[in-house]
C-alpha cells in the first residue's frame, strides 16, 4: 500500500550568520489514510518545526514531504493547521473566521448558500454554532480552540495538523476537547498528525506514537503502535493493561532513555 503522507529523509538546519544549528536529522515517517499519529518529545526537540515543515510554513533543508505521492513545500488548505494558541482573527466573528477559509477553498466549487451551510455544518460539528456571531474575545479558551478546529476541518484537509492543540487549556476543558476530537476522528476519518507533550493524551488519541529524541539533531527514537480498539473511553482505559503498557513505554522513553537535558 502506498503511503498517504510521507516524510522522506527530512533534515532541518537553522542558520544565522556563521552559526548553524541542526534541529532535525533524518526524519522518515509514513502515515496511512485515516491514521491518527502523535509526535511526542521534550520541548525544544523540534517537533513544532517538524509540523511546520509538513504544513509548508517552514522549508526543510534536505528531504521532502510527499502527500499522495506529490511533493508539497508551500502552505495550503490540504494540510490545515490547528494552532496552539487558536490564532483566530480577533476582528472577525466566529462565523467569519471559519468562513474566511471556506470562501477561499470552495470559491468555485460551492455557491454562496452552500458555503454558508458548510460553515454552519462545521460549527455544529464542534458544537459552536450557538456562538457564531460572537468575537473570539467573548468566548472561552476551549471554545476558541473548538472554532480553530472547525476552521481547519471546514477546509476539508487531506491531513489535519494539530500543533499542541490542547496545551493552553485547563485539564477539564482539555479532556472534554480530546473527547470531541476523538469523536470527530471516528466520524470523519481524517488523517491527523498531532504534536503533543502529554503522554496520556498521546496514548488516548493515537494509533501510533512517534517519540523524538532530544535536540539538537533530533531523530525519531521509537515508534509505538497503540493497539487499543476504538471508540476509546477515557474511564475504561484507566485500568486497561494495554493502555498502561503503552503509557509505560512512552514514559520510559521520555524519562529514562532520553531524559530532558537542561541547556547549560
Amino acid at each position: 500500500m502506498q503511503a498517504y503522507l510521507k516524510l522522506d529523509h527530512i533534515d532541518k538546519t537553522f542558520t544565522r550568520g556563521n552559526a548553524s544549528t541542526e534541529v532535525l536529522k533524518e526524519i522518515n515517517l509514513t502515515i496511512d489514510k485515516g491514521e491518527y499519529v502523535s509526535i511526542i518529545g521534550h520541548s525544544g526537540c523540534g517537533k513544532s518545526t517538524l509540523l511546520n515543515i509538513v504544513a509548508g510554513l517552514t522549508d526543510c533543508t534536505n528531504g521532502c514531504v510527499l502527500l499522495e505521492n506529490r511533493e508539497v513545500n508551500s502552505p495550503g488548505p490540504d494540510r490545515a493547521v490547528v494552532f496552539q494558541n487558536h490564532s483566530l482573527l480577533p476582528w472577525l466573528t466566529v462565523y467569519e473566521n471559519v468562513r474566511l477559509g471556506v470562501d477561499k477553498v470552495f470559491a468555485s466549487s460551492k455557491t454562496r448558500s452552500e458555503r454558508d451551510a458548510w460553515v454552519m455544518h462545521n460549527l455544529n460539528l464542534v458544537q459552536m454554532a450557538h456562538a457564531k456571531d460572537k468575537r473570539p474575545s467573548e468566548i472561552s479558551g476551549g471554545m476558541k480552540q473548538r472554532v480553530g478546529i472547525a476552521r481547519a476541518l471546514a477546509m476539508e484537509p487531506k491531513v489535519l495538523l494539530l500543533d499542541e492543540p490542547f496545551g493552553a487549556l485547563d485539564a477539564l476543558t482539555r479532556a472534554h476537547l480530546q473527547d470531541s476530537v476523538m469523536a470527530l476522528h471516528q466520524k470523519l476519518g481524517n488523517t491527523i498528525l498531532m504534536i503533543t507533550h502529554d503522554v496520556d493524551e498521546a496514548v488516548l488519541l493515537s494509533d501510533r506514537i512517534v517519540m523524538m529524541t532530544n535536540g539538537p539533531s533530533a531523530r525519531i527514537g521509537e515508534v509505538l503502535e497503540v493497539p487499543l480498539a476504538r471508540p476509546r473511553k477515557r474511564l475504561e482505559l484507566a485500568t486497561n493493561p494495554g493502555y498502561l503498557k503503552c503509557r509505560q513505554r512512552v514514559l520510559e522513553f521520555l524519562y529514562e532513555r532520553h531524559r530532558f537535558v537542561e541547556a547549560a
Partner: peptide, 9 residues
C-alpha cells in the same frame, strides 16, 4: 496571523 493567511492561501 501570517500563518493563518498562508494556510488559507
Amino acid at each position: 496571523y501570517r500563518n493563518v493567511a498562508a494556510v488559507v492561501q
